[in-house]
């Protein structure tokens, strides 16, 4: 195999198409949005180019900042739940017998084969007042009621009151956890898979219990994967707009919805662009933290 250091031309030919693609379809549109973010909204919703920082000033007003902070909070809760659910799942797959591994991984990836919009509508059918979850609860309720009336306590449970599960904040978080869980499971699984199992055996042999081994050996060794997963889930949840739009109630607006509002009905592209860039800067901060953590991690030898 040729070393690219020795044959720069071959390297150049190979790198040209992807670079051109990135510049044309990623950097250039992004640059346009960046230029727009300093523009002004014309009276009819036109985007007028200008050099104004008004949009950024507006973006950090408390009303918009409060929506950004709430989005960060919702993304953080989503990420935490994904970790609690996803880490054991990843461990289960990593330590499963080899012949089941691929099947289990496939089950994690399977939801991606269906359109996100359809999966979100499916959650509406599950969570709504006359949805499948409430039907199931009602069925259980009736059965328990029947048993109780056999025991001579007919009115102990009272009539079934359906739970209000849709159009509120928990519904949004359920939707976000569901959508983003694979993004945590996959990187964590990848590091656990590569992990040298003899470390764990050594830990157990030397007297540490299962829990001690999990928290002092497995988790630290899998940290790069965990951190990547957390970051992925957090960033994806932070910028979401479909889930709060469909599952959320009157209080569920997130930064993504605010941006969509600007590019849609408000026809205020400059302000929407400024909000988008604010979100992007926030994302850069988190990526910078990741880079810093990675540098530190590189210094530790094990």
């Amino acid at each position: 195999m040729q070393d690219w250091r020795r044959d720069k031309r071959a390297f150049g030919v190979l790198i040209l198409p992807p670079s051109a693609w990135l510049v044309l379809f990623f950097t250039l549109p992004l640059a346009i949005v960046w230029v727009y973010s300093f523009g002004e909204r014309g009276p009819l919703g036109q985007t007028l180019l200008a050099l104004s920082f008004d949009n950024y000033g507006r973006a950090v007003e408390w009303i918009n900042l409060s929506i950004i902070l709430k989005s960060v909070w919702i993304a953080a809760v989503t990420t935490a739940i994904c970790l609690v659910l996803g880490f054991p799942l990843a461990m289960g797959i990593a330590f499963a017998p080899a012949r089941y591994k691929n099947l289990l991984l496939l089950l994690v990836i399977l939801p991606f084969w269906t359109n996100l919009l359809i999966r979100t509508y499916a959650w509406i059918a599950v969570l709504r007042t006359k949805g499948y979850l409430n039907f199931a609860l009602e069925w259980v309720h009736e059965r328990i009621g029947a048993v109780l009336s056999l025991l001579g306590l007919p009115d102990l449970l009272g009539p079934f009151e359906p739970l209000l599960l849709l159009y509120n904040q928990p519904a949004v978080i359920i939707g976000l956890v569901y959508v983003n869980l694979p993004f945590l499971v996959l990187p964590v699984y990848a590091t656990l898979e590569k992990l040298d199992k003899s470390y764990l055996e050594a830990s157990l042999d030397l007297g540490a219990g299962q829990w001690r081994t999990l928290f002092s050996v497995t988790a630290p060794l899998a940290f790069p994967g965990i951190f990547t997963g957390l970051l992925l889930v957090f960033i994806l949840a932070l910028g979401t707009f479909l889930t709060p739009d469909l599952l959320g109630g009157p209080r569920s607006i997130m930064i993504g919805n605010l941006i969509a509002q600007q590019f849609g009905p408000a026809r205020d592209w400059p302000f929407g662009s400024a909000l988008s860039f604010l979100l992007m800067y926030a994302t850069f901060v988190f990526l910078w933290i990741k880079a810093a953590v990675a540098r530190q991690g590189g210094g530790v030898s094990y």
Partner: peptide, 20 residues
Amino acid sequence: VSVGDFTPMYDRAWTEILAA
């Protein structure tokens, strides 16, 4: 009808309603 330059005020009021 279009409210021209007043449009951002409507948008702002709507954002305040949704964020409250």
